[in-house]
Design a protein around this nucleic acid. Structure first.
Lengths: 127, 127
DNA sequence: GTAGAACCTGACGTTCACGTGAGAGACAAG
DNA sequence: CTTGTCTCTCACGTGAACGTCAGGTTCTAC
């Protein structure tokens, strides 16, 4: 398929797909006229890339991880890399949970019947 | 306290503190010469701001949320805002979990005794 | 074979949360 | 009163992941 169809099938912009290629994340065959052609498997690969971007991984990190994930590279270094990134994601989850719980506490307070709660009570939550 | 001490006590750069003020997140009294002076409570406020930044909230969003969180503003709109951001964080957590589980699956495979697993087995995980 | 859609390569623009000097003023210590 | 440290206000730089023209080429359909 060409780049436009890959874009619509993945929901990713054409510009983004070219950017992924520029970063070495997504290879493409070229037609005689220089147009990119992708195999059907590219759809899954783009989804994988998007998933890793969504987890706040940089292009560089994704570039390092992709061989481990989809090409089955299996060396001590690749395993260490995988674990390191997994742990980073875990830490991010913990931070997000902390922020969410903080907001939940405020929400609970603001919805409690004692809606006229004083500033002191709110500050007690800060710690 | 002055800006340098607040910076060391919070672990945030002086530049970042000035930026927070520029964004309306952190007010400061001024001495005769124009230097910023902060109350002790500013330490907690900076930590709160950092927590929200860590949850991928923008300056603008934090600006909208802060009155609800620490000034006890309690209107239907503020409650809706709080819930909306809480839900966004929840969604992010779900995405991070998905990425982490994906990496965990790869890690498990790469550490399994059948280390010579074929490419087919790996692709089966893609879904 | 020709119109129009899709695609190409630069290359500059954008947003965000700061980093990084530059040049000058403010303030505590001796 | 001077020295040294801290602080001030511009204001440009940065990195990441694209957005957005511009000007030209390739492909598809009639």
């Amino acid at each position: 398929m060409r780049i436009g169809e890959l874009a619509t099938q993945t929901g990713v912009s054409v510009r983004a797909l070219r950017y992924y290629e520029e970063q070495g994340l997504l290879a493409a065959a070229r037609s005689g006229g220089g147009q990119r052609h992708y195999p059907d498997s590219a759809v899954d690969r783009v989804h994988l890339i998007q998933m890793l971007y969504a987890a706040n991984l940089s292009s560089r990190t994704i570039l390092d991880l992709l061989p481990c994930v989809d090409a089955n590279v299996n060396t001590p270094e690749s395993r260490a890399l995988l674990r390191a990134e997994r742990d980073r994601i875990d830490q991010q989850i913990a931070q997000l949970r902390q922020a969410r719980d903080r907001l939940d506490a405020v929400i609970t307070l603001s919805e409690s019947p004692a809606s006229g709660c004083t500033r002191v009570e709110v500050d007690a939550l800060v710690s």
